[in-house]
């Protein structure tokens, strides 16, 4: 009798899920890709350009779309995997619609949620007209227009790093890794769009961990005249002209500083996604102190859940950039295939 074709469920259709689905399909494995939104693509769908080279995000979206356009892949949208169970060697995934899906293995690729900026009350997101998030700014870049709420052109723009990251007050002690370099990228883009503007980044540490990130940081200072000020902004308010007024310590001068801004961009960090957290809770998957999924081994088993047949890919385990997400996803596929072959 011919062996039955293997089937893998991928929970989450962002960068990690799409890459995993594509790799598995290429190897002749049947894949069910379960995506909560209207279309696969995840957070990348709203991004305009990517660090470090500022290439259009559409290039990577195109690659990923092509990746999942495979006869072995069945995409189910507007659906989440709520729970994973075992039935012998079989994996049963309970889907949000009340149906279930059976498979030989499952890759969790539930990704991250952007930090909800409303929670940092002192910055007045949702209250003051010209406080936006890094994601909102990408939407503005998509429309090629960076303007204030009243349509006027901002002359001074401030980027606030670490919003929702490295902050015990919102229960996130972890670093979201990508926000620093995103701020540098966005600061350059703003300077290019609005050459008359003055741009500030307010940072606690500049964490330029990836290739060409430090070079981008340097370029932002040397070529684009982006200003950096080391200090965490403590509060924002507005004055009678509806300009934002921020308080920050210029820690290098050792003195408090007050500054007016026309537009304030909050560099929102990454948190474990809500569907991911539900899935972990319902299925008994371990989570770490940062609430992301805890891998079986931090060094050589970051794709392993410790539960037979369940593997992890991408930012459901920790904040990472697209490059690392794709690599992590491919290694998740490798682990999955090895598991299927060994059964």
């Amino acid at each position: 009798m011919k062996e039955k074709r293997k089937h893998v469920i991928v929970a989450g259709g962002g960068v990690a899920g799409m890459e995993a689905a594509g790799s598995l399909a290429e190897m002749g494995i049947r894949v069910t890709l379960v995506e909560k939104g209207e279309d696969p693509g995840g957070h990348l769908l709203q991004w305009h350009a990517l660090f470090p080279g500022r290439r259009p995000a559409e290039e990577v979206r195109k690659y990923l779309r092509k990746r999942i356009a495979h006869e072995n892949i069945n995409v189910i949208t507007r659906t989440t995997v709520e729970k994973v169970r075992h039935h012998g060697h079989e994996i049963i995934a309970d889907l949000s619609g009340g149906t279930e899906e059976r498979a030989d293995a499952l890759i969790v690729a539930t990704g991250f949620d952007l930090f909800d900026a409303h929670r940092k009350e002192e910055y007045g997101y949702g209250i003051y007209d010209n406080v936006i998030t890094s994601a909102d700014l990408e939407e503005m870049f998509n429309g090629k227009r960076v303007v204030r709420a009243d349509g006027s052109v901002p002359s001074r723009i401030g980027f606030i790093h670490c919003v929702g990251s490295r902050d015990e007050k919102v229960n996130n002690n972890h670093c979201s890794k990508v926000c620093c370099v995103t701020a540098v990228k966005q600061a350059i883009e703003v300077r290019k769009l609005l050459p008359e503007s003055e741009v500030f980044c307010f940072y606690m540490d500049m964490r330029m961990f990836g290739p060409y990130y430090e070079e981008l940081y340097r370029e932002s200072q040397e070529v684009h005249n982006v200003n950096y000020m080391r200090g965490k902004v403590s509060e924002a308010s507005v004055n009678i002209n509806n300009r934002l007024v921020i308080k920050v310590e210029d820690t290098l001068a050792g003195r408090p500083l007050k500054m007016e801004l026309d537009l304030m961009v909050l560099m929102v960090g990454m948190e474990m996604s809500k569907p991911g957290a539900r899935l972990a809770e319902a299925s008994g998957l371990n989570t770490g102190i940062n609430r992301f999924l805890e891998s079986a081994d931090q060094h050589y088993g970051t794709n392993r859940s410790g539960v037979a047949g369940i593997f992890y890919a991408g930012t459901c385990t920790a904040p990472m950039n697209i490059t690392d997400t794709i690599s992590h996803s491919r290694s998740a596929v490798e682990e999955t295939v090895r598991y299927l072959g060994g059964r």
Partner: peptide, 10 residues
């Protein structure tokens, strides 16, 4: 200023 933002916090 958006009053609904304050109401949300209240």
């Amino acid at each position: 200023m958006k009053p609904e933002g304050k109401k949300r916090i209240w």
